[in-house]
C-alpha cells in the first residue's frame, strides 16, 4: 500500500513563475489494485508520479510505501521497489544494447553489479520464457538491438523489464500515448496481464477514458493538484466519465 501524506510541491519557488502543483495532498493507494489517474494537461499527474518515483523531491510531506517512509531515499535507492514505464518508449530501455542484454540488465535490478559476465548461459531459458510471455516473438530476436524494434515492441520490452523483478509498485505515465491506437490496445492488455500475473500495485496515468475504466479498479481525477473525483471504476461507464470530464474541463476553458 502507498500512502501520500500532506504532500506539497512547487516549481520555481520564489520567482514570478512559481507554480504550486500540490498543496497538502493526501492519498492512499490500495495494494494489488490498479489506480487510474486522469485530468487535463498540467494538473500534476506526472509530477505526482515523479514525486513517488523520486526523480524530484517534495517541498513537504511523506511518501510511505508498504509502511516504509521512502521520502528521503534517492531515486536509485527507491527504484528497487518501483517499476516505471514512461510515454517515451526509449526511456525504459537501453537502445544500443540487444534485447538479451536489456533483459539481463533488468534481471540484476537492485542487485550488486560485479565484474562477472552479464550474460550467463544458465539464465537463458528464463529470459526466453519471459520474452515468450509477452508474445511478440522477441525471443527469436535476442541479438537484435533495441533501437531497431518498433515503438510497440520497445514499450512491451520496457514493460517487461519494469515488471519482471516484481516491484512493489508500478508507475505508468501515459505509457501507451505515443503508440498508434491498435498497438496501444495491445500494450494495455499486456500491461494488465503482467501486473495481474505478478500482482503489482499500479498507478496508471491515462488520457483514454475507455482504458481508465476498463483496466483500472479505481479512478482518481485531478484538477490543479486536487482530487476532484475518486470512484471505483466499475461504478462508472465510459460515457459517464467522459461527461464528467467534459463538463468540468471544457466549461472551465470557456
Amino acid at each position: 500500500m502507498l500512502k501520500i501524506v500532506n504532500l506539497s510541491k512547487s516549481f520555481n519557488t520564489g520567482t514570478e513563475n512559481e507554480i504550486k502543483v500540490f498543496d497538502n495532498l493526501n492519498l492512499q493507494i490500495e495494494a494489488n489494485k490498479c489506480t487510474a489517474i486522469i485530468g487535463p494537461n498540467g494538473c500534476g499527474k506526472s509530477t505526482l508520479l515523479n514525486l513517488i518515483g523520486g526523480s524530484i523531491s517534495p517541498d513537504q510531506g511523506q511518501i510511505i510505501l508498504n509502511g516504509k517512509d521512502v521520502t528521503k531515499l534517492k531515486e536509485e535507492e527507491r527504484a528497487i521497489y518501483i517499476g516505471k514505464v514512461h510515454q517515451n518508449p526509449y526511456m525504459g530501455v537501453s537502445p544500443s544494447l540487444t534485447i538479451l542484454e536489456n533483459i539481463a540488465l533488468a534481471d540484476k535490478k537492485g542487485e550488486k553489479f560485479t565484474l562477472r559476465r552479464l550474460i550467463k548461459r544458465k539464465n537463458m531459458d528464463r529470459y526466453i520464457e519471459l520474452l515468450e510471455s509477452i508474445d511478440l516473438g522477441l525471443e527469436n530476436k535476442l541479438n537484435t538491438k533495441v533501437k531497431f524494434l518498433s515503438g510497440g515492441q520497445r514499450q512491451s520490452l520496457a514493460l517487461l523489464m519494469a515488471a519482471m523483478k516484481h516491484p512493489d509498485l508500478m508507475l505508468l505515465d501515459e505509457h501507451t500515448a505515443a503508440l498508434d491506437p491498435r498497438t496501444s490496445r495491445i500494450i494495455m492488455k499486456k500491461t494488465k496481464e503482467l501486473i495481474e500475473k505478478y500482482s503489482i500495485t499500479t498507478i496508471m496515468i491515462s488520457h483514454n477514458m475507455r482504458d481508465a475504466i476498463e483496466y483500472s479498479d479505481r479512478i482518481i481525477m485531478l484538477d490543479k493538484g486536487k482530487v476532484v473525483l475518486d470512484k471505483p471504476s466499475k461504478s462508472l461507464t465510459e460515457d459517464q466519465l467522459l461527461d464528467i470530464y467534459r463538463r468540468r474541463f471544457e466549461e472551465s476553458i470557456a
Partner: peptide, 17 residues
C-alpha cells in the same frame, strides 16, 4: 554493461538501482 547503459539512458540505470 552498466557503463554502456549510462551513455545510452541514464534513467534506466537509476531505475536499476
Amino acid at each position: 554493461y552498466l557503463l554502456i547503459a549510462t551513455g545510452d539512458n541514464e534513467s534506466l540505470v537509476r531505475s536499476l538501482g
